[in-house]
Amino acid sequence: MKRLLTLTVLICFSVVIAEKAKAQGGFGGVHANSEFTSHGNLLMIGGGGAWVINPNFYLGGAGYGSANSVATPNGEFNSLGYGGLMLGYFSELKESVRFGGDVLAGSGGYSLDDISESFYFLEPNIKVWYSINHTMHLSAGVYYRIAYLNADANLNQQHLNNFGIKLSVNFGNL
């Protein structure tokens, strides 16, 4: 997984260099996610921000934490938190509408009853942004988190590999 993170960082810097780093601005905001697990819905709250490299690419980060717990056959899934680096792309469809996606890669941890463990993940997202005005933007999207657990983890990997929906309010320049 360390190789994957190193590769992600190298790709991000390559994009910056290739695009001559013509910064367009940046954005940041609050995110609310709902994941559909086999044992119930998991609500995730977090935030993220990014530097808009050019009219189409952005580079940043995001982090999330669970707002509720879910009962699994292995025990009570008390908490989940994760974050990482984000590389994204968007394209303007209309004057105030953008479509695109990003990939979030990093690490996190979870708590199952009294046991805490860590994991690595990749999370591709597909999003639509709507600009209310020049500095306020709403977005909605779907994602799938692919988690990589240790071989001796107490939680099944499938409990962390989830589809979800994401709603965001972002402030800044896109």
Rank of each mutant, 00 (worst) to 15 (best):
S34W: 10
G40D: 06
F90V: 09
L122N: 03
G83R: 10
H137N: 01
L80V: 07
V15P: 01
G84H: 00
G106E: 03
E19C: 15
V30E: 11
A147V: 03
W129S: 14
N173W: 08
F57H: 02
M1Y: 10
H134D: 15
Y58I: 02
Y110F: 04
F77L: 00
A67Q: 01
N68P: 02
E123V: 04
N156T: 07
I146W: 02
N133E: 12
G25R: 02
D114S: 13
A71L: 15
F119P: 01
G109H: 13
D152G: 05
L80E: 03
N54Y: 01
Y89C: 02
Y58C: 03
S91A: 13
A140R: 03
K20A: 15
N33H: 15
F13W: 14
N162H: 07
F121W: 00
F99E: 09
G106M: 03
A105K: 02
F163R: 09
A67E: 06
F36Q: 09
K20L: 14
S131R: 15
I146E: 01
Y110L: 02
F171V: 09
G63N: 12
I165L: 12
A105N: 06
A151E: 15
V30F: 14
G46P: 00
G108E: 05
S79M: 11
G164W: 07
D114V: 08
S66H: 07
S14K: 02
N54P: 06
L160A: 00
M1C: 11
L167M: 13
D102R: 07
G47C: 05
A105G: 13
L43V: 07
F36G: 14
A32I: 13
T8W: 13
A71T: 15
V15L: 10
K127L: 13
P55S: 12
L174M: 14
L85N: 05
L43T: 11
G61R: 09
G141Q: 04
G84N: 12
M44S: 02
V142N: 10
L43P: 00
V97R: 03
K20D: 15
Y143E: 01
L5K: 13
V52Y: 05
F57Y: 07
P73T: 11
S139I: 06
G106N: 01
F163L: 10
D102H: 04
I115L: 07
L112T: 00
G26M: 12
E92H: 08
Y143T: 01
A105I: 09
N154S: 05
S131A: 13
N56F: 04
S14A: 13
G46S: 10
L43C: 04
L87I: 00
V15H: 03
I126C: 07
F36R: 12
C12Q: 11
G40Y: 06
A21V: 11
P124M: 10
V103E: 03
S69G: 08
L174H: 08
I17Q: 04
Y58K: 00
Y110M: 04
A147D: 11
S96R: 14
L43I: 04
A21F: 10
I45C: 12
F13R: 08
M1W: 14
N68L: 01
L155R: 01
L160P: 04
Y110E: 02
D114P: 05
S116M: 04
H31D: 15
